[in-house]
Simulated assay, not measured.
Amino acid sequence: MATMIEENGPSTHELSSSSKARQKLEGLLNKNMRIRMTDGRTLVGLFLCTDRDCNVILGSAQEFLKSTDTFSQGEPRVLGLAMIPGHHVVSIEVEVDSLDDAQGFGANH
């Protein structure tokens, strides 16, 4: 007697698209990122994780304040572990040296 197993999960196409996005995101783990926030601050640190709400956790984070002089950023403030709420994120950049190891993330975008 054979038993049939039904799957009620996402379709194969959705799963492959989701797994590709997950692989790209996992490729960015422990890479240096620069996150610009709505209040003008910039945080730089190691990308540790994110969640469904696009909140981002950075390790060894440093905060740079918005400068009126474009040539001087001033001294960074060391934060350590930092959580950036997703609704405050304006942009995220991966540092070029870190991106070389990210297995072609964004190469076709």
Score class of each variant (00 low, 15 high):
Phe47Met: 11
Phe47Glu: 02
Phe47Ala: 11
Phe47Arg: 03
Leu48Met: 12
Leu48Cys: 10
Cys49Asp: 13
Cys49Lys: 13
Cys49Gln: 14
Cys49Trp: 11
Cys49Glu: 13
Thr50Asn: 08
Thr50Ala: 09
Asp51Cys: 08
Asp51Arg: 02
Asp51Leu: 03
Asp51Glu: 03
Arg52Ile: 06
Arg52Trp: 05
Asp53Cys: 01
Asp53Met: 05
Cys54Leu: 10
Cys54Tyr: 02
Asn55Ile: 02
Asn55Pro: 05
Asn55Arg: 03
Asn55Trp: 02
Val56Lys: 00
Val56Asn: 01
Val56Leu: 04
Val56Ile: 15
Ile57Phe: 02
Ile57Tyr: 01
Gly59Trp: 00
Gly59Ile: 04
Gly59Phe: 02
Ser60Cys: 07
Ala61Pro: 00
Ala61His: 08
Ala61Arg: 05
Gln62Tyr: 10
Gln62Glu: 12
Gln62Gly: 12
Glu63Gln: 13
Phe64Cys: 07
Leu65Asn: 14
Leu65Ala: 14
Lys66Ala: 15
Lys66Phe: 11
Ser67Met: 02
Asp69Ser: 06
Asp69Glu: 06
Asp69Lys: 00
Asp69Ala: 00
Asp69Phe: 00
Thr70Lys: 00
Thr70Asp: 00
Phe71Pro: 00
Phe71Met: 03
Phe71Lys: 07
Phe71Thr: 10
Ser72Phe: 09
Ser72His: 00
Ser72Met: 06
Gln73Ala: 13
Gly74Phe: 07
Glu75Ala: 15
Pro76Val: 15
Arg77Pro: 09
Arg77His: 14
Arg77Val: 14
Arg77Lys: 15
Val78Phe: 12
Leu79Ile: 15
Leu79Gln: 10
Leu79Lys: 06
Leu79Thr: 08
Leu79Val: 15
Gly80Lys: 05
Gly80Arg: 04
Leu81Thr: 06
Leu81Asp: 01
Leu81Trp: 00
Met83Ile: 13
Met83Ser: 03
Met83Pro: 03
Ile84Thr: 05
Pro85Ser: 12
Pro85Lys: 10
Pro85His: 09
Pro85Asn: 11
Gly86Asp: 04
His87Val: 09
His87Gly: 07
